[in-house]
Lab assay of single mutants.
Amino acid sequence: VKKMAKAIMADPNKADEVYKKWADKGYTLTQMSNFLKSKTAGKYDRVYNGYVIHLD
């Protein structure tokens, strides 16, 4: 998940494709939050927020 999150950060155009894969795998927002937690607070906030919007 972190590898794909980094791919989104490097190229935001990949976001919809990645979010669809995550949704197809049934990842919940709680799971995504836990996967994307980082020592650098807020590092993956943009990715998480994008997934929230995708699921909505």
Rank of each mutant, 00 (worst) to 15 (best):
residue 1 V to T: 04
residue 3 K to A: 13
residue 3 K to I: 08
residue 3 K to V: 09
residue 4 M to Y: 07
residue 5 A to D: 04
residue 5 A to M: 04
residue 5 A to K: 03
residue 6 K to Y: 08
residue 6 K to E: 15
residue 6 K to A: 14
residue 7 A to R: 08
residue 7 A to H: 07
residue 7 A to N: 07
residue 8 I to G: 02
residue 9 M to V: 06
residue 9 M to I: 13
residue 9 M to R: 05
residue 10 A to Y: 08
residue 10 A to P: 02
residue 11 D to L: 04
residue 11 D to E: 08
residue 12 P to G: 07
residue 15 A to P: 03
residue 15 A to D: 01
residue 15 A to V: 05
residue 15 A to M: 06
residue 15 A to E: 05
residue 16 D to A: 13
residue 16 D to Q: 13
residue 17 E to H: 08
residue 17 E to Y: 10
residue 18 V to N: 02
residue 18 V to C: 04
residue 19 Y to Q: 00
residue 20 K to V: 08
residue 20 K to I: 07
residue 21 K to H: 13
residue 21 K to F: 15
residue 22 W to E: 00
residue 22 W to F: 01
residue 22 W to M: 02
residue 23 A to W: 07
residue 23 A to K: 09
residue 24 D to S: 13
residue 26 G to P: 06
residue 26 G to A: 06
residue 26 G to H: 06
residue 26 G to W: 04
residue 27 Y to C: 05
residue 28 T to S: 11
residue 28 T to V: 01
residue 28 T to Q: 04
residue 30 T to H: 12
residue 30 T to K: 13
residue 31 Q to C: 07
residue 31 Q to L: 07
residue 32 M to P: 00
residue 32 M to I: 15
residue 32 M to E: 02
residue 33 S to R: 14
residue 33 S to N: 10
residue 34 N to H: 14
residue 35 F to A: 06
residue 35 F to C: 08
residue 35 F to T: 03
residue 36 L to A: 00
residue 37 K to T: 10
residue 38 S to L: 07
residue 38 S to W: 05
residue 38 S to Y: 09
residue 39 K to N: 12
residue 40 T to E: 12
residue 40 T to M: 08
residue 40 T to R: 10
residue 40 T to P: 15
residue 41 A to H: 13
residue 41 A to C: 11
residue 41 A to S: 13
residue 42 G to W: 05
residue 42 G to F: 05
residue 43 K to S: 04
residue 43 K to L: 11
residue 43 K to I: 09
residue 43 K to G: 04
residue 44 Y to S: 01
residue 45 D to K: 06
residue 46 R to Y: 12
residue 47 V to D: 00
residue 47 V to W: 02
residue 48 Y to S: 00
residue 49 N to Q: 14
residue 49 N to C: 13
residue 49 N to G: 08
residue 49 N to L: 14
residue 50 G to F: 05
residue 50 G to K: 01
residue 50 G to C: 08
residue 50 G to E: 06
residue 50 G to H: 04
residue 51 Y to C: 01
residue 51 Y to F: 08
residue 51 Y to L: 02
residue 52 V to R: 14
residue 52 V to N: 04
residue 52 V to C: 07
residue 53 I to P: 01
residue 53 I to V: 13
residue 53 I to M: 14
residue 53 I to L: 13
residue 54 H to M: 05
residue 54 H to C: 04
residue 55 L to D: 01
residue 55 L to Q: 04
residue 55 L to Y: 04
residue 56 D to V: 15
residue 56 D to L: 15
residue 56 D to C: 15
